[in-house]
Amino acid sequence: MTIGRTCHGLLAATLLAAASFASPYQGPIEALLPRVVKLYGLAAGAQAGYGTGVIVSEDGLVLTVFSLLIDARHVRVVTSDGTLYDAEVVRRDADRQLAMLRLRPPGAAAEGQPAVGPLPYFDLACGEADAEKRVRSGDWVVIAGNPFKVAEGAEPVSIAHGIVSARTRLDARRSFKDFPYRGDVLVLDAVTSNPGGPGSAVVDIEGRFVGMVGREVTSNLTHTHFNYAMPRDVLCEFFLEATGKRPLSVPLAAQMATENVPVDPGIRLTRTGYRSLPPMVERIRKGSPAERAGVRPDDLILSVNGRSVSDASEYDERLKSLTAGEPIDLVIRRGRTIVSVRLEPEKTP
């Protein structure tokens, strides 16, 4: 027994020593570095002239975000060994805000191009079994990219680490325009919203490719910059379409039409500038659910589906959380009376 305890103690000490010297991030970092590339392209306005991409095929397909960067006449790509390639854009996806590039050896003639590679890459030919590999909230992730253009040539790109905070729907904007992608994203607790950061690869602690940092956006909910990654399954769909392995089904747009179409009950509230005003109805659209339910101008909206609203922007927030095609219950103050109304949805053609 005594011997056993001693041995156990020794073993624990050995394990502890081993654990304290081998960084658990070493594996993921080794998986990341050869598969992440530095991009150089168009600089315009807030768009930095550099960025990051991920190699997704051994013959030189590079996944990145859909941005002005790749609109340059020459998009240049530097792989981890310092080799400089020209790249052409083979696919742009405005819905998912993703793009696919193909590497060409620099200076090669357009026709009869010599093959590139074989390069180390992350496999995006996702199968059914892939769903099980999804990261979960709380999982550690390691991120590699070239924000701030810290690395050049063969220098290794920057690493960051953090956890997946949640998987959720993105609701964001860029400047004053809504961000078109409204699908699922992985929320990260590392700061990824940096110039040059979009396109960075995200792997889990086993070194598996689980996502790619998306474009810099501002959350519509918190009005702060949002740190997130496009999840692997979304990248897979894009990859399969971009490589012709799956027909372009416009599935995303269709999904969004049914799942995330903005709900419009036909009420316009009184608004002046940026001041926060009480949710007072100004106009009602003809033939809208609100008109059919008898909502009138000068009605004050007190609650939406049982949740109180105190100003116009809160009313907007409530609407965003609703699903199209379902009735909406409003409580309204009209003069000195309180009225409850139910708005039936419009029939979709």
């Binding site: 011997i3 056993g4 041995c7 156990h8 020794l10 073993l11 624990a12 394990l15 502890l16 654990a19 304290s20």
Partner: peptide
């Protein structure tokens, strides 16, 4: 005996990992 016990303790995985984390 040490080796045998060592193997056993590796098999007992999760508990010792938590222990290692706590000690680290």
């Amino acid at each position: 005996l040490c080796i045998v016990l060592g193997l056993l303790s590796i098999a007992a995985g999760p508990a010792s990992t938590a222990d290692l984390v706590a000690r680290a």
